[in-house]
């Protein structure tokens, strides 16, 4: 059972990671991060159940809380950016790149 669960967690994690790498939409990138966090939480929870320890579930709750907080901050930044630029394209936000003058 654990093998299946861990493979599922790994699959989720990879989907999230690939999503971050290939999506340009900030909203989808945020969702991909949540996906990765969920994958991590699933792995921890399964581990806890395998060794009959409650710690896994405790950490899962903590990860949810942290993820929710992150989403709150991320969504508000996303909205602020949307109001500023009228788009949610991550590649447009490359002001900190090398060798190009910052437009004032």
């Amino acid at each position: 059972m654990i093998n299946h669960a861990m493979m599922f967690a790994g699959l989720l994690f990879v989907i999230g990671a690939v999503g971050i790498m290939i999506r340009r939409n900030l909203l989808f990138m945020l969702i991909s991060v949540e996906l990765m966090l969920n994958a991590a939480g699933l792995a921890i929870a399964v581990g806890g159940s395998k060794w009959s320890q409650p710690d896994g579930q405790v950490f899962l709750i903590m990860i949810f809380v942290a993820a929710a907080t992150g989403v709150a901050v991320g969504i508000s930044l996303l909205l602020a950016n949307y109001h500023e630029r009228k788009n949610v394209d991550a590649d447009e936000l490359s002001l900190m790149r090398e060798r190009e003058p910052i437009e004032q």
Binding site: A17, R23, R24, D91, L93, M96, R97, E98, R99
Partner: peptide, 17 residues
């Protein structure tokens, strides 16, 4: 090394991963 600093968050994420 400075050419790696593209300012694109996806590239940074990719290298992290």
């Amino acid at each position: 090394f400075s050419s790696l600093q593209t300012g694109r968050i996806r590239n940074y994420a990719a290298s992290l991963i």
